[in-house]
Computed example of a mutant assay.
Amino acid sequence: MASLGDGEHQWLERVKSEGAVPLLDPDNCSNGWASPPGDYFMVRGPEYLTTKTKIPGGEYLLRPLGFDWIKGSTKIAEVLKNRKNRVRKAIDEEFPDGDKPFVWAFNLQLPGKDNYSAVAYFAATEQFPEGSLVDQFLNGDDGFKNSRLKLIANIVKGPWIVRKAVGEQAVCIIGRALACKYCVEENFFEVDVDIGSSMVASAIVHLAFGYISMLTVDLAFLIEGQSESELPERLLGAIRFSDLNPACASLYEPSPYGSTDNLQSSLPTRLWKSIGQGFSQLLHPVPGAQENISTVGAVHDNETSEFKEGSEDTKKCMQNHPMPEISKSVLTPSFPFLIPMNQIILVDSVYVADGVA
């Protein structure tokens, strides 16, 4: 792996600045992106397992490389496998003989007909020691990755309704909440995060998207430390984007070889599949489905300082608007329309069960 060293590289600065969204100062990045200070995020400290004490995140393990705000005719996936991707292309041109820097990409696939993606890129400054937590993560299976990759989200600026929905310094293990597809190659790691795979996350993002030109959002990525030897936690990297304009998203040019995630089924196919799943659940209710309704607000419940089993507002709402038994047994993202209309609220053109969002 090529070392980036401490000096600045022309290609690195070019990649940072060539995206549709410009690189700006963290304190003034309207319609741009930046890398916020690591101390803005709180992570598990060295004695977290006994004291639950968190500490400022400190320096990042990775160097910020770029940010893409893109949209496509289909869901955008495996961007670093695409030789037309601007980051991949810049690295291939700079290092034609191999020994390329190791690049990380976090592709957040937003739900919706326009297939927007927000992609954050980072580069490793040096090779991680064999057996380290990062090394274990890269070489571990999808189950290990799903249980460890953590996201810290913070709404720095935005309307009250969005800040209320997201909360302050919201933390989640991404793979436990959303469908993730990992791609690990010799010179890069990519995770495609399908936000539309969760009805709750999809509703919150749809709500936030309506105010995206008024939002400043910080997103930090890290690998969760679960033992003393893995603490304190270290941030991989973080991105800040502010006041994004949907019209400024660049059109993504897909790879000529295609991607399995881009083969989306047609609307009639998805509709009939949903109907089939719904009737199957009516005849054969999923065990635990009713319990899932009452705990839908619980996320990452082993970290009590960050998550509690639903907010008080959610509990009161569920008490005041009890859902019929049939609705509880079939409430799934694939079959939400069996919920009575008086139990549904409209959130930015997305129907969500009352109390869930």
Rank of each mutant, 00 (worst) to 15 (best):
A153C: 10
P129C: 01
K84W: 04
V119Y: 03
K164C: 13
G140H: 07
K145F: 06
R88T: 03
K157F: 09
K164L: 15
N115R: 13
L149I: 08
I173K: 10
K89Y: 08
S147Y: 03
A105H: 01
Y116F: 15
F102K: 02
S132R: 05
R163E: 11
S73N: 06
A153I: 14
G175V: 04
Q109M: 08
L138M: 08
F137Y: 13
L65Y: 10
E168R: 15
R86I: 00
K164W: 10
F95M: 02
V162L: 08
A170Y: 13
S132D: 08
G66S: 04
A120E: 05
Q169L: 10
K164T: 15
V162Y: 06
K71Q: 14
F137I: 09
V87L: 04
A123C: 05
L108K: 01
S73H: 13
L80P: 02
N154V: 11
G98Q: 10
K113Y: 12
P96K: 05
A165V: 10
A170V: 13
W104Y: 13
I152W: 03
F102Y: 08
E94S: 15
V171Y: 13
G158N: 09
F95P: 07
I91C: 04
C172Y: 11
L133N: 03
K84S: 09
L110V: 14
F102W: 06
Y121K: 06
V119N: 09
S132E: 00
V134Y: 04
F102G: 08
